[in-house]
Nucleic acid binder design. Sequence first.
DNA 1: GTCCTCTCAGATATGGATTACTGTTTATTA
DNA 2: TAATAAACAGTAATCCATATCTGAGAGGAC
Lengths: 343, 343
Amino acid sequence: MNGNISIKDISKQAGVSIATVSRVINKNGRYSKETEKRVMDIIRKNNYVPNLVAKGLRTQKMKNVGIIVPDITNEFFMKLVYEIEKNFFSKGYETFLCNTDEDEETERKRVRMMAMQNVCSLVYVSGGMSNIEHMIKDLPTVFIDRIPDETKGNYCMISSDNIQGGFLATRELMECGCENILLLTSRKKISAYSERFEGYVKALVQGGREADAIHVVYLDQVNYRTAYETMSRLLDAEDFIYDGIFATSDWLALGCYNALTEHGYSIPEEVKLVGYDDISITQFNAVPITTVHQQIDIMGKTVVEQLLRILGGESALQEVVKVPVYLNVRESTRGRKMPKKYE
Amino acid sequence: MNGNISIKDISKQAGVSIATVSRVINKNGRYSKETEKRVMDIIRKNNYVPNLVAKGLRTQKMKNVGIIVPDITNEFFMKLVYEIEKNFFSKGYETFLCNTDEDEETERKRVRMMAMQNVCSLVYVSGGMSNIEHMIKDLPTVFIDRIPDETKGNYCMISSDNIQGGFLATRELMECGCENILLLTSRKKISAYSERFEGYVKALVQGGREADAIHVVYLDQVNYRTAYETMSRLLDAEDFIYDGIFATSDWLALGCYNALTEHGYSIPEEVKLVGYDDISITQFNAVPITTVHQQIDIMGKTVVEQLLRILGGESALQEVVKVPVYLNVRESTRGRKMPKKYE
DNA sequence: GTCCTCTCAGATATGGATTACTGTTTATTA
DNA sequence: TAATAAACAGTAATCCATATCTGAGAGGAC
């Protein structure tokens, strides 16, 4: 196909059967030292690379994993993918990465394509809400930051502790003395976001705030532009009452930051800001942004551990594996700190 | 393998031969309307997905392309990959993305793996210098920003106009009145970097500068940390004479920026700065950074065009396809502009 | 009724690799 | 020396899907 030599060509050149070549390649014994040398020499001379696809077809087990992410240009996702790949490689697995571009139709297509490519399992990084469960059936799958609609099947769920993250972010704002804290989040029903919302409410409640302290703006798209435009509209209206904003992703926080500064608000003096994910841009921003750090190294390790457990025949854990988060406090929440009574 | 139903199972259930099922799937004719309906119903009911791997094995042509990048967490590379994938998808090709992590050994492993996975061609985004040509032999390959060591073979080379980029960046600094312009670049012998160097020299020469106007610092690694540490060391020394810096990647520019500001230098008042790539962080920086914009949309489109030409049987272009660049002027080069005598 | 042309569909070889089974040497033991 | 074990290597079935070749049956023309 790509001009590659096959085991058959090698066997002809070496004057042995293809079975013998196969045995030599797989070091299965049943051949003499001379045969081995002769075959190996020819393999090296011809630069033979085994066809994994044919091997997988025959052995019915491939060591390759499909990884699906909603946005490959998002640093957070890619750092997570990097960690996941690193762990898989160390166990002798190959990975295939693909992008759904935050689009449900594309998502379905990509999942289908992965199934067709005969991957032995899937890793699903925080996608949308399209029903893909019926497509993957018995395909062992790890969902990250996303709880599947049907929980029967070989699914495993790993999530950073989003409730705790939302809680830490909101408590930080309260400790800085913020009276009116706005939550900026996604309209999509993705567990990661609804849990961050839950943590936000939890912190408000523990801080003794009433129900009317809850202020939420939902965004159709989780990206810089949408956040920037939405905040700008909000700031153009006359009654901007917020002195603290918790954005459920760093790009949203950045959109807020620029909308706010362009409207003459200073951060952190007038408005304090907390993001989520801890992508590198938050520390390089004019005013470095306080953000919830997700421990992607631990997440990556956990993903591979869990998937290997399932592939090893054990049944998937039913509960979600939670990975702790912590707050990286930076300039955007500098200022008066309240006593830690909210803990 | 992954619990998937095969064409054989379908044929049994439908009471027809596997050949008929195959014909129905591929709409090759030679079957009746009733047969078609019966087969299609069973296919749908069982959620059958064809095994592309087996199909590829048989037909000897797969429509899948391997894409190799040195760093998946780098926004520039991933935006380029995004464009490349978009164009391939629209032509019915699948893509596999993998990461070499800037490591030669990993690079070799990944290329080998791609060959084993039976990809029909490769796209090689700006990698290191390891000799991989012998591994890909007849595999049609597009190199981006990297000129292969051996140019025989089905290789195609696409590059943004790095000489022009280096020229524009340096001329901008000269027009701002910079006297001593430092070039911060990679020690690696990668064509992209050496061409930017060439453009830098060209601008200096056209501006009437002497040979001693050339000041270069070479970095072992092209990343934020290395740039930051190297610049810090340079600034700690007593004789920092530079009033203009051209960094051959935005992350390097950012490292410079932070080292400079932490040492009390103000940008652009005392030192002017130009980066390369136009990643989003440059516009969100405290002082937005002037940078050379690479037209990744055009590059992505060109990659696919050229690869399809080769796959269509035409021979690869021998010369490098150059994609124009332009300068995005921002705050970091604000200040006195000289007349455009250097044009 | 015979011949021919269609239409529809089965049997089978194929692609690259693995593996159970079988068979041929050579070495070992009674 | 004959029986037996051990070492080595070939034959062929198999994985899933495709494609060529073959063949059965219907319908039309003479």
